[in-house]
């Protein structure tokens, strides 16, 4: 049973349909999976979310959410999905409690009915329940938005860039909450521009310019990375990067923390790199082999 099925969805913007936001996207999400949609700004993530939450009509293609067609059976979908838009969109002039109550009511339910589902999240903002939503901090706003999206016990949850603009600790907490929700059997589709969050999903789709570059488990994506990868550092990192890129054997080089990551075209390129590093001994150049992580994989996918 698939919770979300997307088949050849195409969406273009502009009068002459000149801007392709999504070009023939297809994927499936099994029930209860935490599915990550990773991509830079403008990749088409929000467009896809808006189509799946029945806010936008696709130009062509089919999509089903929880077994219902997004065009014909949109009314059923609206009853059973939770959507948290990228921008904070609750009423800033209503209090935390009033917001939650309002959304519970328009879904014909009440806070007490589904309290067990949101308890872990809501308990953190409950001390501020008399505070107006507009006066909450970023992390608390996001917890409230998640509570509101969950209050009617949706079967599929859409989270559009929930962690953008949230501090590192809150981000970590947020992903913990998502794991908890997954255990309740809720299918979650989450988008993020941060690649380090991809590793926390069950499955990840990399979206760029409206196309899916790869869909795999995080481990699978890392395993697909076959080129040798080295980390190099010395003094004068900027010069070093330019010099590395000029090498014959180097496929790609990019800054990565305190090192530059160097992707070689093949194993034999190692020799050239070693020679290069030795020639820069006076600049304290060092090199070491590294295991690719998901970010390396995405950078290489995006550049090809």
């Amino acid at each position: 049973m698939h919770s979300v099925i997307v088949e050849n969805i195409i969406k273009t913007y502009g009068k002459k349909k000149e801007v392709a936001a999504l070009s023939a996207i297809s994927f499936e999400i099994p029930k209860g999976e935490l599915f990550g949609l990773i991509g830079p700004d403008g990749a088409g993530k929000t467009t896809l979310f808006r189509i799946l939450t029945t806010l936008l009509l696709a130009d062509s293609g089919n999509a089903r959410v929880d077994g219902f067609d997004v065009v014909k059976e949109y009314k059923s979908i609206r009853k059973r999905v939770g959507y948290m838009p990228g921008k904070f969109s609750l009423y800033p002039d209503l209090t935390v409690e009033e917001n939650l109550n309002f959304f519970a009511t328009i879904f014909n339910t009440s806070i007490s009915e589904n309290y067990d589902l949101i308890k872990d999240i809501y308990i953190q903002i409950e001390p501020f329940k008399k505070r107006r939503a507009g006066k909450l901090s970023g992390g608390m706003k996001q917890k409230l938005a998640l509570s509101c999206a969950l209050i009617h016990r949706p079967s599929v949850l859409f989270l559009d860039e929930p962690t953008t603009g949230v501090d590192a600790v809150s981000r970590k907490e947020f992903w913990e909450m998502l794991k908890g929700l997954k255990q309740q059997g809720i299918t979650i589709l989450v988008s993020t521009p941060y690649m380090d969050e991809a590793g926390l999903c069950d499955k990840v789709a990399l979206l760029q310019n409206g196309k899916i570059l790869s869909i795999h488990t995080p481990q699978g994506i890392v395993d697909d990375f076959s080129d040798p990868l080295w980390a190099v550092k010395s003094t004068g990192m900027l010069h070093l990067l330019n010099d590395l890129l000029a090498l014959e054997a180097v496929k790609d080089a990019y800054p990565f923390g305190e090192f530059h990551h160097v992707v070689l075209k093949n194993e034999s390129g190692k020799k050239e790199l070693e020679q290069f590093v030795q020639s820069r001994a006076k600049d304290h150049a060092v090199m070491q082999a590294v295991k690719p992580d998901i970010e390396d994989c995405f950078i290489s996918l995006m550049k090809n």
Binding site: T53, T54, L55, K75, R78, K79, V81, Y83, P85, K87, F88, S89, L90, Y91, P92, F103, I106, F107, N108, C148
Partner: peptide, 13 residues
């Protein structure tokens, strides 16, 4: 403008 209409629109209201 404040985006609440998005949230309202996905509800069965």
């Amino acid at each position: 403008e404040i985006g609440t209409i998005e949230q309202i629109n996905v509800t069965p209201i």
